[in-house]
Each structure stands twice: as C-alpha cells, then as structure tokens.
C-alpha cells in the first residue's frame, strides 16, 4: 500500500519514511498540490506549535486537498503536531483544521516539554486497544496536548502532570501524541495495527 507523508516544513520525515519501508508501505512525500495518485493512507506529522502550521499548509496548497481526503474518508494518521491539527484551536492563537471538536491547551505539568518514554492506557473496546492491553511505553516530546470535547474520541490516555489524551480516533482519523517512528518495536506495532484495522 502507498502512504503519502505530508511535508509542510514542520520537521523531519526520514524516520517516518524508514518506518513505512520497514512495514512494507510505499512512502511518497506529499509537498504540494493534489494528493499523490494511488495513495491509500496519509501521515500528517509535525513538530512545534500550531501557530504557523495551518498557514503553511495553505501556502503549499495542501490544505484543500487534505480537507478533501478527510471528507473522502482516506485514513489519516496524525502524529504529534499532526494530531493537534485535527482539533479546533490552540492556546496561543493558533488554530487547527477543526475535524474534531476540542482545544489544544498547554500541558499542566511542572516541567515541559514532556519528553521521553511514557505509557499509554488504551481504552478497552476502541479499535487498537486489544493489541496494547499491557499499557506499553511510547516516546513523547510535546508541550501541548489535545483536549477533545467528545470523550468518545479518546482511544488512549497518558499521565504527565495531568491525564491527557495520547491517542484519539474517529472513523478513518487516528492521531497519536507520541512518536511511533521513534518508539522502537511498539511504535512499529502501533502503525502496523493502524494499517490493519483502519486502512485495510
């Protein structure tokens, strides 16, 4: 299957490309214009803050095709800033794509960024949960987290200063606050499970 990795100058795509190759996905980098032909699913990555992200997507002509892909229910995996983009607005005036209702507040923790390995408790009954019943650890680097208005979209939660949604999902839209591409074997299993359960 082919995965299009959105490149909007918000970080490095090499690790994602490498992981895609390891799980037998053909990775193409989507830099501008229409969704690359033959794309089965999309990774929306990103580091940094929401403030410039949507502007950059528009500037590259990616925002509208991405919106169409979302409406056509092409599976989209958001990672880190990518999952934050699913929501409506951030704390410092940035806004997201508004696909899921909710905000992106700063983490209420004594020290940010939240950085390093931390566990994710997957909510039983959600599509990925049975594969991760042991609450595995994933690798995080972030200062903001998503606060969904609808608790039903929360597929996994993590504790750092507060309890926050670390995995969200609705239909073909799934997002992780951690970096599966930097999380070793569990990260690989997370993406493989996403591909099997949501994409296929």
């Amino acid at each position: 299957m082919q995965v299009a990795i959105v490149d909007y100058a918000m970080g490095n795509l090499g690790s994602l490309q490498a992981l895609a190759a390891r799980i037998a996905q053909t990775a193409v980098i989507w830099r501008q214009g229409e969704l690359p032909h033959g794309t089965d699913w999309i990774i929306l990555p990103g580091v940094g803050s929401l403030v410039n992200a949507v502007t950059e997507l528009h500037r590259r002509g990616l925002a509208n095709p991405l919106e169409r892909a979302y409406r056509d229910q092409i599976p989209i995996l958001g990672i880190c800033l990518g999952v934050q983009l699913f929501f409506e607005s951030g704390e410092e005036g940035g806004h997201g794509l508004g696909w899921l209702r909710g905000q992106v507040p700063k983490l209420a923790a004594p020290k940010t960024p939240h950085m390093g390995w931390n566990t994710v408790a997957f909510r039983p009954g959600t599509p990925l949960a049975d594969q991760f019943a042991s609450e595995p650890a994933f690798y995080f680097v972030h200062s903001y987290s998503v606060l969904p208005a609808d608790p039903e979209v929360i597929w996994g939660e993590t504790e750092y200063g507060q309890r926050f949604a670390s995995v969200v999902g609705q239909g073909a839209l799934v997002g992780a606050q951690f970096h599966p591409e930097l999380s070793g074997a569990q990260g690989r299993r997370f993406i493989e499970t996403f591909v099997r359960r949501v994409v296929a």
Binding site: M10, G11, N12, G14, V47, G48, M115, G116, V141, L182
Partner: peptide, 14 residues
C-alpha cells in the same frame, strides 16, 4: 538513544 530520539523528534534529518 534518548538524545538521538529528541533530535529527530525536533526535526533533525539525521
């Protein structure tokens, strides 16, 4: 490995 992970997460290519 943690330092390498952080650099890649923060956008270093290599």
């Amino acid at each position: 490995p943690e330092a390498v992970a952080r650099a890649l997460a923060e956008g270093a290519q290599r």
